[in-house]
Design a binder for these strands. Structure first.
Length: 573
RNA sequence: GGUCCCGUGGUGCAGUUUGGAGUGCACGCCGCCCUGUCAAGGCGGAGGUCGCGAGUUCAAAUCUCGUCGGGACCGCCA
């Protein structure tokens, strides 16, 4: 039916008779006997010169047979990849007519989100969406290639899984054959892949769909895709190395160059330096420690504070009082007792409502510690350590963070997470990752005495402030697992009830193993220059979880519910 | 569950602060003209429940309340 893609034609093709199929992107009529028709397919756009186009309209589907020729002198179009050629002597066959599209099929204007999704099949014709899905496919292919190269075996795992009490809210699937019982859709293949390790598959990977019934965000959809992997007889560095290579391969495949650095940050250092466990390395200066500078300060807000941290905001010394007051309010909203701001003036003079409470040494110390220069703004928070960190970390992003989709690509690993993230009201620790995460070998002795100080062998991959994925080395030995359960206050019976089938499997020879999962939608979005993952998903849902194209979710026939033994309650109120 | 922004011919916007006739801009659509354009150009035309519902008012796109839809965020996402 066709010989070439519209966007592939070049001067080399001049003289060739070609058959092209595509959509009418635009037509420019110059009277009865000359018209230019821009023909579009996935490969791009090419100009066809036809003898009258009055029977053609936008988005008509046509087949054009014509001869490629170099454009006449002075009429080439440098904005078009095919701009040096055109297709002449055309015969045009209309394969299908089309109503005018509900919104323009162009990257120039952004249409209403509902309209785009209701007519996604039109939206997908736009160059932006086609490029994004091509990026997605390229990332997919690069990741697969890397995993295959390292001997990982692709294995599929069930979508109909068993409810588990931990973690995200699950999508529930009623069973027809076992009325009153339910499957759930997996929030990740976590337990399945650990069973594969017990099963001796050694190295597993899967481009896996994961489902979580939680509220949607710019970086979260109900269903999302992960490069999921797990390997036996590995340590943390082995996992980090193979994931780094795969992700850098994918990045190189899309942007053409390979980010050189993939630094590893200890979680504690990330919190100290960036006030975040998913630091955006692009967002300006790091937080600095000011405890020493203000040790013994006469300023009441600083004296006796558990921690004093500062942040330099380059060039923002000219922020007005309204903005500065708003910053103080924002800091309080984030949990800080207060926020001190200082403008750095000429000669390093500090202008601030609290400047008069500070000694000369303190003022000089702040400038030296933050490297503040004239025109800068310096923010200081004195509070509990975690509060000072996270508040300044958030302000750092608010004041200095480029859009996530804006390069460069600054990957980093965050390692040495705490095993527990806090204490329940009754004093039991709360696992930060999941109950099967291996503690750091050096910290095993602290489990009973100081559980919150125990580090884990879990790790996150971060790109430009987005968490791209996480993983851990898992516990494979019953005695360590028992100690963790004891620390968590989980009895033997309870453990059996909640995780029975996994613990059962571990009795029959579980190898040491660990793994990772890379969030594909987020990676692709950033590499495609998008700040919303809907733009890299062919058929996403709106923020309220609706698909305007299909109308999902929708009621089902009463007969179907009857088969399932389900009765729907009337709406409340 | 909560906070904020948006909703105006097919599309994207302005108009809303300070109420006074559905006013405007660009694109698209329809018709005519036009032989080198490329976001073609010229002339003419059609197209509106100002998301929906109450309220205030002599008068509401504009003010108030509610509601629906979209988006960003908090909670939530081990």
């Amino acid at each position: 039916m066709r010989s070439d893609g519209c966007g592939t034609l070049r001067t080399d093709d001049a003289g060739r008779r070609v058959a092209l199929c595509g959509w009418v992107a635009r037509r420019r009529e110059h009277g009865e006997h000359l018209a230019f028709v821009d023909l579009r397919d996935r490969s791009g756009i090419v100009q066809c010169v036809v003898d009258g186009a009055s029977d053609l309209r936008s988005e008509y589907v046509v087949r054009v047979v014509g001869t490629v020729r170099v454009r006449p002198e002075g009429t080439d179009n440098p904005d078009l990849a095919t701009g040096e050629v055109e297709v002449g002597d055309c015969t045009v066959e209309v394969l299908n007519r089309a109503e005018p599209p509900p919104f323009p099929v162009t990257d120039r204007v952004d249409a209403d989100e509902t309209l785009r999704l209701r007519h996604r099949y039109v939206d997908l014709r736009r160059g932006r969406m086609q490029r994004n899905l091509e990026v997605r496919a390229a990332v997919n292919a690069a990741l697969r290639a890397a995993m295959e190269r390292h001997g990982f075996l692709e294995v599929e795992t069930p979508l109909l899984w068993v409810p588990t009490p931990e973690g995200a809210r699950e999508f529930v699937i009623p069973s027809r054959l076992q009325q009153g019982c339910f499957y759930v859709l997996p929030q990740s293949p976590q337990l399945a892949k650990q069973l594969l390790m017990v099963g001796g598959l050694d190295r597993y990977y899967q481009i896996a769909r994961c489902l979580r019934d939680e509220d949607l965000r710019a970086d979260r959809q109900f269903e999302f895709t992960q490069l999921d992997l797990e390997a036996s007889f590995v340590g943390q560095d082995d996992v980090l190395d193979v994931v780094s290579e795969a992700v850098l391969d994918a990045t190189e495949a899309v942007v053409g160059e390979r980010p050189k650095a993939m630094p590893r940050l200890a979680w504690g250092d990330a919190m100290e330096r960036f006030g975040s466990d998913k630091p955006d390395l692009r967002a300006g200066p790091e937080l600095v420690e000011l405890d020493r500078v203000f040790a013994g300060s006469g300023f009441r807000a600083f004296a006796g504070a558990a921690c004093i941290k500062g942040l330099r905001v380059p060039g923002q010394g000219d922020l007005g009082r309204n903005r500065l007051d708003a910053l103080v309010e924002a800091a309080k909203g984030l949990g800080a007792k207060g926020l001190v701001w200082l403008r750095v003036g000429e000669e390093g003079a500090l202008e601030s409502p609290v400047a008069k409470f500070l000694s000369d040494e303190e003022r000089a110390g702040v400038l030296a510690a933050t490297a503040g220069r004239p025109g800068d703004l310096v923010l200081v928070v004195a509070d509990e350590r975690d509060v000072a960190q996270t508040v300044l970390g958030q302000l750092r992003l608010d004041l200095g963070r480029p859009p996530v989709s804006e390069g460069p690509y600054r990957f980093c690993w965050v390692v040495d997470f705490p095993l527990f993230e806090g204490l329940e009201a009754d004093g039991r620790p709360i696992p930060a990752h999941h109950a099967f995460t291996m503690p750091h070998p050096d910290d095993l002795e602290l489990l009973a005495s100081d559980p919150l100080a125990v580090r884990s062998q879990s790790y996150d991959l971060v790109l430009n402030g987005w968490e791209l994925g996480s993983g851990s080395i898992r516990i494979h030995r019953a005695d360590v697992q028992a100690r963790i359960f004891a620390t968590l206050g989980i009895s033997e019976e309870e453990a059996k009830a909640r995780f029975g089938f996994l613990l059962g499997a571990f009795r029959y020879g579980a190898p040491p193993h660990g793994g990772f999962a890379v969030g594909l939608d987020r990676l692709v979005a950033i590499l495609a220059g998008e700040d919303n993952i809907r733009e890299v998903i062919a058929f996403p849902k709106t923020q309220s979880g609706v698909d305007p194209l299909t109308g999902a979710p929708a009621p089902v026939a009463p007969r179907l519910l009857a088969d399932l033994g389900i009765r729907v309650l009337p709406p409340e109120g």
